[in-house]
């Protein structure tokens, strides 16, 4: 059963960029295009890692260190998130707070690196990012607290172990509410539609992309890779709670979780193809709405 404890960080490191490729391919299918190869994110990374770098004269060490720090934090997060029915390497009560803290490190680094450039575009992106993050955090906490309450423990590994078809049926409508809230948070935190559009080409409309405008070469590669890992980590959180099927065999369970990740990528691609972006002023409503759903789930679990 502990196979996946060790395997998950390696799988995450290897396959995280694939999620982006799957999302892009799904969107291409919806749009009737052939689309880029599923492995395109890997080609992009390989290209970026072979390049040199250009730094703005305004920037300091902070700007150079931020992508590295952000990637390191999210790599550690893969050690805390369980996968495939096995507990995580680092599992202890309240470990989801550590995941939130590690995500916050990445955000802090990206935001101050954006302010380091002295560009008004990047300041604007940073301002939007911290606003949405501040509102997404209560939603994330409430949904994980509700999941923990349903599982009777505050460790992510415990929550995963307790998730089963029976617990779904017993908790009734609470778990779909938690899942809905978590999906909203995953979309917002990973800058996907309807909160942010990763494909936009106008600085004024960007959030995450505009913060990393000035990064290039290996630094941009580290950022893109870190973003892929972040999607993987948060997706794993979601899949663990939403896909409670367990066969008891480590390889089958791992396969189910991997299938869940693929499904998540397709779902995100579908959402992105079928929805328009929300107006920026509407995003807080989405996030507060997610928090409300999670709070409702909590009430149902407590009942």
């Amino acid at each position: 059963m502990r196979t996946w404890t060790w395997l998950h960080p390696l799988i995450a490191l290897a396959f995280a960029p694939l999620l982006g490729g799957l999302i892009a391919r799904t969107k291409a299918v919806f749009a009737g295009r052939t689309g880029a190869p599923v492995l395109q994110p890997y080609f992009d990374l390989a290209k970026l890692f072979r390049k040199g770098a250009v730094y703005s004269r305004t920037t300091t060490t902070v700007f150079r260190a931020a992508p590295t720090v952000g990637l390191a934090a999210i790599i550690v997060a893969t050690l805390v998130v369980p996968f495939g029915g096995a507990p995580a390497l680092l599992a202890f009560p309240g470990d989801f707070l550590l995941v939130v803290g590690l995500l916050a490190i990445g955000r802090f680094a990206t935001v101050i690196a954006a302010l380091d450039t002295g560009s008004s575009f990047e300041g604007m992106g940073a301002s939007r990012e911290v606003q949405f993050a501040a509102l997404a955090e209560p939603a994330l906490f409430l949904s994980l607290a509700a999941a923990g309450l349903a599982a009777g423990g505050s460790s992510l590994s415990r929550m995963q172990a307790a998730a089963s078809v029976e617990s779904w049926l017993a908790a009734g409508p609470a778990l779909p509410l938690i899942a809905a809230a978590l999906i909203a948070v995953v979309l917002a935190e990973n800058s996907r539609i309807p909160v942010d559009d990763p494909n936009t080409h106008l600085e004024l409309t960007m959030i995450h992309e505009v913060m990393i405008l000035d990064h290039g070469g290996p630094d941009l590669g580290l950022i893109l890779y870190g973003a892929a890992l972040k999607l993987w980590v948060m997706g794993a959180l979601l899949v663990n709670i939403v896909l409670p099927f367990r066969a008891g065999d480590a390889w089958v369970d791992g396969g189910i979780s991997l299938a869940g990740m693929v499904l998540l990528a397709v779902a995100i691609g579908t959402i992105e193809s079928s929805m328009a972006r929300l107006r920026l002023t509407r995003v807080p409503q989405l996030l507060v709405g997610a928090a409300t759903l999670a709070a409702l789930a909590l009430v149902l679990v407590l009942r």
Binding site: G52, T58, S119, G221
Partner: peptide
């Protein structure tokens, strides 16, 4: 890893992207 990636590659200074 980052140091390794940047070794031997050109690193230049320029202005912040200003559109």
């Amino acid at each position: 890893i980052r140091v390794g990636l940047l070794r031997g590659r050109p690193v230049r200074a320029s202005v912040t992207w200003d559109c």
